[in-house]
């Protein structure tokens, strides 16, 4: 389709506005984490730093268990992503490739999972997990995170399965491959972009989770990044430099991670579908 000069102008303005909306706050946070404390809280803020210091990062790494929080978050998020993918594949295959009684009803029930206010199940879950010795374990967080990521992941599976022609599987079946061989050798490779998208979705959902992580985890050594960071905020003081350094350091690794896998997420969602 052709685009006139006016079209280009509107497009350029819209792109610029979006870039500003997403990147300007990041820029301010990132650059300010290197400013001296006085410049950070100055009544007249600066777009470009006038001072430079690493003191906030030093303080963050010296006095808090930031690297531990970070590793915990990675571990919990990666495990959650892995389990979510496995369960979503199982459920996806059942829902979108098999015929069975009650299928529609069950599928709908799964979608209804988001109707339970998470705040409601917080305390019952705590008491339940306490009974089976899951309090203060990573497994507790993985279970909760998978619960919240799974329904949406199953919904995403729907599009991915729909985009795969059944003829492929049928052809494999005619060639004499059994059901599981077909799944492993034909279906899963074809679903790869979709699997990547679900894994990333589950990873991010777990990476950002705060409420359950704050209550189900007790010891400092097991805290995830959001909870550890909220502890640094402190009760009586706000050290903006420290917080901005913490914010930057907690965003940076995900940015790096996303630089590698981000296109899979978008591709999985957009190109996984039949055009």
């Amino acid at each position: 389709m052709k685009r006139g000069p006016l079209g280009w102008l509107v497009l350029a303005l819209a792109v610029l506005a979006l870039v500003f909306l997403v990147l300007a706050p990041m820029w301010l946070v990132g650059t300010s984490s290197f400013k001296l404390p006085r410049e950070i809280i100055n009544r007249v803020p600066t777009w470009f730093p006038h001072s430079f210091t690493l003191q906030h990062y030093q303080k963050l790494l010296q006095t808090s268990a930031f690297p531990t929080y970070f590793l915990n978050s990675v571990l919990v998020a990666a495990s959650s992503a892995f389990v979510t993918v496995i369960l979503a594949l199982m459920a996806g295959y059942a829902f979108f490739r098999l015929e069975f009684r009650g299928r529609d009803m069950l599928y709908r029930l799964i979608m209804v999972a988001y109707a339970f206010p998470s705040i409601v199940i917080l305390i019952p879950i705590y008491l339940m997990f306490a009974k089976v010795g899951l309090i203060d374990t990573d497994l507790a967080l993985v279970l909760v995170n998978v619960t919240f990521a799974l329904p949406f992941s199953i919904w995403m599976m729907r599009t991915f399965f729909a985009s795969l022609p059944r003829e492929l599987e049928e052809a494999a079946a005619i060639d004499g491959a059994g059901r599981w061989k077909t799944v492993v050798h034909v279906l899963i490779p074809l679903l790869r972009p979709g699997i990547a998208a679900i894994a990333i979705f589950a990873f991010v959902a777990s990476w950002t989770e705060y409420l359950f992580a704050s209550v189900l985890i007790i010891s400092d050594a097991k805290r995830t990044l959001p909870v550890g960071l909220s502890g640094i905020i402190g009760q009586y003081q706000i050290d903006w430099g420290l917080l901005l350094a913490g914010a930057s350091l907690s965003v940076l690794p995900v940015v790096v991670f996303f630089a590698f896998v981000g296109r899979w997420f978008v591709a999985g969602l957009t190109e996984g579908a039949v055009k």
Binding site: V15, L18, L229, S250, G262, R263, F265, V266
Partner: peptide
């Protein structure tokens, strides 16, 4: 742009 628009979504709520 399609990849990086998502940036704000991967930031933890606390941040």
């Amino acid at each position: 742009a399609r990849v990086w628009i998502i940036l704000t979504w991967i930031i933890p709520t606390v941040v």
